[in-house]
Simulated assay, not measured.
Amino acid sequence: MKYRIKAASPHQLTTVLFLSLLLGACSHTVQVAGKYPSPVGDQLPLSVGIYLSEDFRNYIYEEDSEDREEWKINTGRAQKNLFETVLSSMFTNTVSLSQYPEDIPKNVELVIVPEVRELQFTMPRETRVNIFEVWIKYDMNAYDPRGQQVASWVITAYGKTPTAFLKSQEQALTQAINIALRDAGATLYTGFEKVPELQAFLSGKLRSASLQEFKVKSSKAE
């Protein structure tokens, strides 16, 4: 039996092309790759390991709900840059760890491991205000070299940007995310010593260092 393939009519081709363009128009990709300045201030006298997991370094948020257009938002590179920059400025020595908890350098006194808990955003048509808003929440974890948890706290960051002078929705959302990431960095920098468990940890380290210094001076005096 032979089958004949009927050629599509111009009207059918136009319909297919229109639907393809419509589907493409409803899909958005955002690649955030910001660079962030190092905070300036006194460094804490600690040697700290920084572990950014593969999921953290390559984090992608995907929105695919029925009442929204499709969004694919990659913040991995940007948040890697942010956390490495801020944490490196906070301590006298930092070490980037390729794995954890194995193979921790002997001089590391504390290991910090951030994780993305959630990313949320709103669009102008949802709020009836001509801005994009972004919220990012990070779970922060600090461990001693043996893997025992020292502290666990949460950082919540917020960013918004008007769309009026930006060329696209993607550009507006990228700017809002970068503002949220800067907010996360500022909160990390200013709030670290306010975490009660970290206050206790730092006090213990300072007492230990002072005692060691006293012993050294005493031995020299003898």
Rank of each mutant, 00 (worst) to 15 (best):
P105Q: 06
N107L: 03
V108C: 00
E109H: 05
E109R: 02
E109P: 06
V111E: 04
I112Y: 04
I112N: 00
V113A: 01
E115A: 11
E115T: 12
E115F: 03
V116D: 04
V116Y: 03
R117H: 12
R117A: 13
L119Q: 11
L119H: 01
Q120K: 14
Q120R: 14
F121M: 04
F121C: 07
F121P: 06
T122E: 06
T122M: 01
P124A: 08
R125Y: 12
E126A: 13
E126M: 12
R128L: 14
R128Y: 12
V129I: 15
I131M: 04
I131C: 00
I131L: 08
E133M: 09
E133N: 13
V134Y: 05
V134W: 05
V134P: 11
W135N: 09
K137S: 12
K137E: 15
D139T: 11
D139C: 05
M140Q: 07
M140I: 13
N141G: 07
N141D: 11
N141C: 03
N141A: 13
N141Y: 05
A142I: 07
Y143R: 08
Y143V: 12
D144W: 04
R146T: 14
G147D: 10
G147L: 04
G147T: 08
Q148P: 01
A151H: 07
S152N: 10
V154R: 06
V154T: 15
T156Y: 03
G159P: 13
K160Q: 14
T161Q: 14
P162N: 05
P162L: 02
T163E: 09
T163C: 05
F165G: 00
F165I: 06
L166W: 03
L166F: 07
K167H: 09
S168C: 10
S168M: 07
S168G: 09
E170C: 02
Q171P: 01
Q171I: 15
Q171N: 07
A172K: 03
A172V: 14
L173T: 08
T174P: 01
T174L: 07
T174Q: 14
T174E: 15
A176D: 08
I177A: 00
N178K: 06
A180N: 06
L181P: 00
L181A: 00
R182A: 09
A184D: 09
G185L: 04
G185Y: 05
A186T: 15
T187Y: 00
T187M: 03
T187E: 13
T190F: 06
T190P: 00
T190E: 12
F192E: 04
F192S: 04
F192H: 01
F192Y: 10
E193S: 14
E193K: 11
E193N: 07
V195E: 13
E197Q: 15
L198P: 10
Q199E: 14
A200P: 11
A200I: 15
L202I: 15
K205T: 11
K205N: 14
K205L: 08
K205A: 03
L206F: 08
S208K: 09
A209H: 06
A209M: 15
L211N: 12
Q212H: 13
Q212W: 04
Q212S: 14
Q212I: 06
